[in-house]
Design a protein around this nucleic acid. Structure first.
Length: 272
DNA sequence: AGCGGAACCTGTCGGC
DNA sequence: TGCCGACAGGTTCCGC
């Protein structure tokens, strides 16, 4: 479900809610396959730790704890974090409950159970963080980087932009939107993207991500903020989930194709 | 290296 | 109503 803007939205809200609070205990309703490693150890590692900060790397949430320790979370398709005041009525998909000193609770809720929760004393110990590519909102995202990395690549540009080893945080929704605004066909090979096209991809990547964050992300069906509100960026989507709708620029029907077993939406007239 | 396919899980929706 | 297939914001693994 969530891509960079949705994760960033959740991170900012959690940071405001949690800073200074303390985990008093952890209740696990369903561990498998969410909680990585031993459940008793997981609970013990978190009990009594204070939240210093919440940050994001790619689509991971990083809870910084004191004494030093880290809770690393990935929402995958349907994971959510909810912070609520007293105990709410437990709902069907609540998986892990963090009881806080403030008497509030933070709930990890996940319909499909693809999400992951893991604890590290050093972030450098996480293999998944190690493999990640560059942050798209950083100054590392340059035409030079793409051209050097992908000069001879025959992979489709859609596939490359989804590859978290190259650039992180982009998912199925935003990649379709970025390529539409850049007027680039999703099946073009990365190696065929020209010197003047990479700057377009970079410009629209940043623009769309920033606008999506300002709108608290995109809610198509599942995504919810920490307070259960929805995002608002869905109203600005031009192609995602718009199969057969007329293109906003030229009126030709938006087309849906499948790449890497996933839907891609594009305008066959505007994107070349 | 990089493709296709399957797997991890659960739910919804549309067609017959 | 019921069953069946397709599909869902993600990632990883396996075999060519």
């Amino acid at each position: 479900m969530p891509e960079l803007p949705e994760v960033e939205t959740v991170v900012r809200e959690l940071r405001g809610e949690l800073s200074g609070d303390v985990i008093t205990s952890v209740e696990i309703f369903r561990s498998n396959p969410i909680v990585q490693g031993d459940c008793d150890l997981f609970q013990e590692q978190l009990r009594g730790r204070k939240f210093l900060d919440v940050t994001r790397r790619a689509k991971y949430l990083i809870f910084h704890l004191q004494p030093e320790r880290y809770l690393l979370a990935h929402l995958r398709m349907t994971g959510k974090f909810i912070v609520c005041d007293p105990l709410p009525k437990p709902s069907k998909h609540n998986r892990v409950l963090f009881h806080l000193k403030s008497r509030r609770v933070m709930i990890f809720d996940d319909i499909r159970c693809f999400g992951t929760l893991e604890v590290y004393d050093n972030l450098a110990d996480s293999k998944s963080l190690l493999k990640l590519g560059i942050e798209p909102l950083s100054s590392d995202l340059t035409s030079d980087f793409f051209m050097k990395r992908l000069a001879s690549s025959k992979r489709a540009i859609k596939t490359v932009l989804l590859d978290q080893k190259i650039v992180v945080g982009l998912g199925n929704i935003y990649v379709s939107e970025i390529l539409f605004r850049s007027r680039i066909h999703p099946q073009r090979s990365a190696g065929s993207i020209g010197k003047k096209e990479w700057p377009l991809i970079i410009k629209y990547t940043k623009k769309i991500l920033v606008e999506a964050i300002e709108n608290n992300g995109t809610t198509i069906s599942d995504f919810r903020r920490v307070d259960d509100k929805t995002g608002k960026f869905q109203q600005f989507l031009q192609v995602y989930d718009k199969n057969n709708h007329p293109c906003a620029k030229c009126g030709v029907p938006i087309q849906r194709i499948v790449q890497q077993q996933r839907s891609t939406f594009f305008c066959p007239e505007c994107q070349r």
